[in-house]
Design a binder for these strands. Structure first.
Lengths: 212, 212
DNA sequence: CAATAATCATGACAAATGTCACCTTTTTTC
DNA sequence: GAAAAAAGGTGACATTTGTCATGATTATTG
């Protein structure tokens, strides 16, 4: 099985490579750091399956997957993420991608890859638990465990890039006040105190206030 | 070889376990998430070697190592870190620990462990390059690539925990104004703009201002 | 159709943050 | 021993941030 690994964290992608290649059935044909890499490396290497992070700088894994599937509808893509966000799950499912795993379950990656290789869908345990309610609610409120909206999610990613409210407002074509309001409600929903904790949460997946 | 793995990031520690146990010579006897765990688990399991992250919540790997070595001078400890900080290298060397690796070089961990097990010191490539200049300057300016002082480093770790200036000042027994001054100089040294970028830098090792 | 949710906006206000200038006391280093 | 660096501090100031109340518009859903 020839695998393409995409993750913007070099630590994660290199450790994935090591873990995967410990299995004789698996060969990591290339490693990329972003959505652009994913598209290019898929074209040039034609791997059997792509193992890709959802959240990455600039182009998200979902966006990259859309483009890859547009060029090859049979592409098999397995997503990884720290941020257990329902919105992404639905998006990934809609893409017709081969499944969705959480990063937390690192040791289940190889069996999941093999299952996906056979054309079967794979979901992490947390996902399976949520699936019924997700399907029942269908499109409706597919906006994450924390009830975050589309725009709020976008805002978070910019906070996690270290941008100021003003900068975010310019990028998102909003007033600075709106950005402030968005962040205020995000913080309330996530039970965080300030943007720094939000950035930490984004990357670490933990809420500092709860642990302290 | 019986190994104890300590890392506050569950993703890292679980993937380390997977990587290490792929080798028939290695057995991971326990996993811990912080310095306290390290001390307790070392006592109860008496592993041949400890593989430990340097930067962790509350107690750093260095502090934990000090305590472990105090109780067992023959303890073998291999450090991991993302933050390639000279200050830590010197501290680790001074401890008489068995070496120092950077997280970046994930695939070199097993050979490094085996080398350390034999009682030999191990250093990552980046360290070897720096070693001469470090030794030449001896104690002098062992304060990191960015010229950060001891207290500044401490302050950074608290910012990365999502604490406010006031909270940091209470923990460090300083006035809030001093904490603000520290952070101000840290930001200047690291060419960052605010504490959120600092937290991002701490975890990602990149400076948002430079990349944007 | 009515209710709800999402999106976007203002203005006002308090609190937190970051900067600056300036100062003292120890340690370290040359 | 003088100079420099580290550690700690104060007060003032501008800016940023986060909160709140309140309101408008547009989709969406029951």
């Amino acid at each position: 099985m020839r695998v393409l690994v995409i993750d913007d964290d070099a630590l994660v992608s290199s450790s994935l490579k090591t873990i995967l290649e410990a299995d004789p059935d698996i060969q990591v044909v290339a490693i990329g750091n972003n959505g652009f890499d994913a598209i290019e490396l898929y074209k040039s290497h034609r791997p059997d399956i792509i193992l890709m992070d959802i959240r990455m700088d600039r182009m998200t894994g979902i966006e990259a997957a859309e483009k890859i599937i547009a060029s090859d509808p049979d592409a098999k893509i397995l997503f990884l993420t720290t941020f257990s966000d329902d919105e992404y799950i639905i998006k990934a499912l809609r893409l017709g991608s081969k499944g969705y795993i959480l990063k937390q379950r690192f040791d289940s990656i190889i069996p999941s890859l093999k299952t996906a290789y056979l054309g079967q869908n794979v979901y992490g345990e947390e996902i399976i638990g949520k699936l019924p309610s997700l399907l029942k609610e269908d499109e409706k409120a597919g906006l994450g465990n924390y009830g975050l909206t589309e725009r709020e999610l976008e805002t978070i990613s910019h906070v996690a890039e270290g941008l100021s409210n003003k900068e975010i407002s310019e990028i998102m074509y909003l007033s600075e006040g709106t950005v402030r309001n968005y962040i205020s409600t995000i913080l309330e929903k996530l039970e965080l105190r300030d943007r720094t904790q939000l950035a930490i949460f984004y990357y670490k997946g933990i809420t500092p206030t709860k642990s302290v």
